[in-house]
Amino acid sequence: MITGATAVYGVVGHPVGHSRSPEMQNAAFAAAALDAVYVALPVAPGRLDEALRGAHALGIEGLNVTVPHKRRALAACVDLDPAAEAIGAVNTLRRTAGGWEGFNTDAPACESLLAAAGVGPGARALLLGAGGAARAACFALLRLGADVRVAARRTEAAEELVQQLRTAAPDGGRAAAVPWGALEAEAGAADAVLNGTSVGLAGHGGRLPAVPFRPGQVALDFVYGETDFARAAAAAGARLVTGEQILVRQGALAFTLWTGRAAPEAVMTAALARPHPTTARAPEDGSGGPPGAATR
């Protein structure tokens, strides 16, 4: 039962009604016997600043931040963790008396999952995109010592990402921007291919060029659900790191930041295995699986 003493958490984004974070985090709160609730909070572009001020005034204890607000949320924070500061994007907010503390849990989640998949020093990686998720992925790859190629539809965005993050991670990785048109050749030469774009995200159009995956190659998709990217990677025998895995891992880190407790990751994973009302329908692309969903 929700009462006046219930701690409130949530996710802000646009769109955000399809987010599976409420199922996942509410299952975690229940497993931990915490009097807390997590809700999806739609915030239109251009209204994030006032939304975050209002959320703090209302006493909301913590928030996740998703598309399109991750970079904008940085300016609303009174303090930042080193990853968020280096990446220039925030996906987790924790309430303090003086304002919001900002964290990036995407980066450590991505780093741990890539390391478990075998990505390490000297690996060659192709990263698609230059937004908040791509920035976290690039930071993670550089920390693992990978040689990163960044491709975005706007080459200048990829160049800006590389310039900002080239020296942000200490472990010897390298990063360079490559033309979007070189995606197929770069993918063929890569040990890992990561989708950090919003393609496949519910409510977002567009398609990625066909990626020539191969057996044993690592493929990571920040978007969860049965995306074209994930289907192609799985069909080719690539080692797929799914958006669901990233969702659980970054959500577990956020849970611990908010509560000071270890997160029940198995419970969170099980919550995502249950059908979701907004994704248990025919996909917009007619492929027969659920449409892609946000990374929160």
Rank of each mutant, 00 (worst) to 15 (best):
G13V: 09
G13E: 12
H14F: 14
P15H: 06
P15A: 02
V16E: 04
V16K: 02
G17P: 06
G17M: 11
S19Q: 10
S19F: 06
R20D: 04
R20Q: 12
S21N: 02
P22T: 07
E23A: 11
E23S: 14
M24F: 05
M24L: 01
Q25K: 04
Q25N: 00
N26H: 03
A27S: 01
A27N: 03
A28T: 00
A28G: 12
A28P: 04
F29D: 01
A30K: 06
A30V: 01
A30P: 02
A31Q: 01
A32W: 02
A33T: 09
L34W: 01
L34V: 13
D35S: 09
Y38H: 05
V39T: 13
V39P: 04
V39H: 07
A40R: 01
A40W: 01
L41R: 00
L41T: 09
L41N: 05
L41Q: 01
P42T: 09
V43R: 10
A44W: 01
A44R: 05
P45N: 15
G46W: 07
R47Y: 08
R47V: 12
L48Q: 05
D49W: 09
D49Q: 12
L52R: 06
L52E: 03
R53M: 14
R53S: 12
G54C: 06
A55D: 06
A55L: 12
A57T: 12
L58H: 10
L58A: 03
G59L: 02
G59Q: 03
G59R: 02
G59I: 00
I60Q: 00
I60R: 03
E61C: 15
E61T: 09
G62S: 04
G62V: 09
G62M: 08
G62L: 05
L63H: 06
N64W: 08
N64D: 10
N64Y: 12
N64G: 15
N64P: 11
V65M: 06
V67M: 07
P68M: 11
P68N: 11
H69W: 10
K70A: 04
K70I: 07
K70Y: 06
R71M: 15
R71D: 13
R71G: 12
R71Y: 10
R72I: 13
A73K: 07
A75N: 10
A75L: 13
A75V: 11
A76I: 12
V78K: 11
V78W: 11
D79P: 00
D81L: 15
P82E: 15
P82A: 14
A83E: 09
A83H: 03
A84C: 11
A84S: 13
A84Y: 10
E85T: 05
E85R: 15
